[in-house]
Simulated scan of single mutants.
Amino acid sequence: MIENRRKKSLIALTMVSPFILVFATFFFYPMVEMVRISFTDSPLIGQGNFVGFANYAKLFSDRLFVTSLKNNGYFLLLTVIPTTVIALLIALAVGRLSGLKQTLAMCLFFVPYILPVSVVTEIWAWMLDLQFGILQPVISLLAGKPVAVFKNPYWVMPMVAVVTIWWTNGFNVLLFIAGLRNIPTELYEAASLDGATRWQSFWRVTWPLLWPVTTLVLTLQLILQLKIFDQIYLLSGGGPFNSSFVLLLQVYREAFQLNNGGYASAVATVLFLLIVIVSVLQFQLLRIRRAS
């Protein structure tokens, strides 16, 4: 029995060792180095002197950091809940289809997700171009005149949010569709026999059983949107007047443009801790909501 246990343990260790090796090499070690460098004044490449918490103390007086933090929070409000609601509505609509129609609808909503960010931003930059954009009539209808949305401090973050939702929502739709398919049809039949309306069936059957998937989607979206960088870098570069400047953009600026590796690591460490704390807190609150 002891030999069998040792053999099973050795087999298990052999199977998980590739993951442990990759995780330690590409995540754990860089994370430890990031935290270590954040306590120094080192450049991007090379050694630096130990400065303690000086980089972290500097964050509280850095107006750009405060602005970036506010912009990250604003972007969360624009994306996390809206994209979850939109994905749920699309999934409910697609779930009513069948056969080829359902397949085509799923492909239609998922295709943007497989596009690289450079292609997505180029498409939307063309559609929202001030002179030739095909969506400028819609902007004119809302604003009363054409607007260069990515150069306007009031329009830039909402439009980046629209681009992000259009680009990433296909994955959320698939998650909700998978959740809907796991709900037994017998429950709907029983609700129908009891005289429940469609809204009552959704509120009493679909929504409670779909809550774990909703929790997953909300948590994933929170993590992803806190790490926003690509769309803003390509569409607005953080402008105008830092109105779309976010934390990862500041990490990029400090590390690769100003060669302040220590300070960039401090900003990245704060962002990492923020993602961990907020995502865990949200996940636990949603679990409590489900249990109640």
Rank of each mutant, 00 (worst) to 15 (best):
F132R: 15
V85G: 07
I232C: 02
Y74T: 03
L258N: 14
A148K: 14
S279P: 14
Q131P: 04
G179A: 05
E122H: 12
Y263E: 10
T206I: 02
L209N: 11
T103A: 14
L193W: 00
P18S: 03
A143Y: 13
D41A: 05
F202R: 05
I86S: 06
R5G: 03
T197R: 08
G239Y: 07
K58G: 12
Y113K: 13
V217T: 01
S68T: 09
A178F: 06
S17Y: 04
E254M: 13
L235F: 08
M1C: 03
P112S: 08
V217W: 02
A148I: 00
K101C: 10
M157T: 15
K58P: 02
L115M: 14
P184K: 06
W167P: 03
L180D: 08
I165V: 15
V111H: 00
F19K: 11
P82C: 02
A24V: 08
F75C: 02
N242T: 09
L128D: 11
F256Y: 01
Y56M: 01
F27C: 10
I183K: 10
V94D: 10
L88F: 08
T185Y: 00
S68E: 01
K145G: 00
A161Q: 12
Q47Y: 10
M157L: 15
K227C: 00
T214S: 13
W167K: 05
M34D: 00
P146N: 13
Y154H: 14
P212A: 01
L104Q: 15
F109W: 13
G237R: 08
L218A: 11
N72S: 11
I232K: 07
L226W: 14
Y74K: 09
W199N: 09
K227Y: 01
L44P: 02
Y233Q: 06
T14Y: 04
V22T: 05
A24C: 13
L274G: 09
S192V: 03
F272W: 07
E254N: 12
V22D: 00
S140M: 14
M1I: 09
V119P: 11
P158R: 06
V94Y: 04
I81H: 09
R96Q: 15
S98R: 15
L100R: 15
L115K: 12
G195L: 05
L44H: 07
R63D: 08
L234W: 05
D62Y: 01
S243N: 11
E122G: 13
W167R: 04
K58F: 01
P30S: 10
K151T: 01
S243M: 09
V246D: 00
V276G: 01
W203I: 09
G95Q: 15
W166L: 04
F19L: 12
S42Y: 06
N152P: 10
I81M: 07
F60S: 11
M106V: 09
L135V: 03
Y154E: 13
L210V: 11
G170N: 00
P212F: 03
L76C: 03
W166S: 05
W203D: 13
I86P: 10
T79F: 04
L77A: 08
R5F: 08
L273I: 14
G179F: 03
L104Y: 15
V213A: 07
D230Q: 04
P240R: 06
V117Y: 07
V205P: 02
F50K: 10
I139R: 12
E254G: 04
Y233I: 01
L224D: 15
G48Q: 10
I37V: 14
L69F: 09
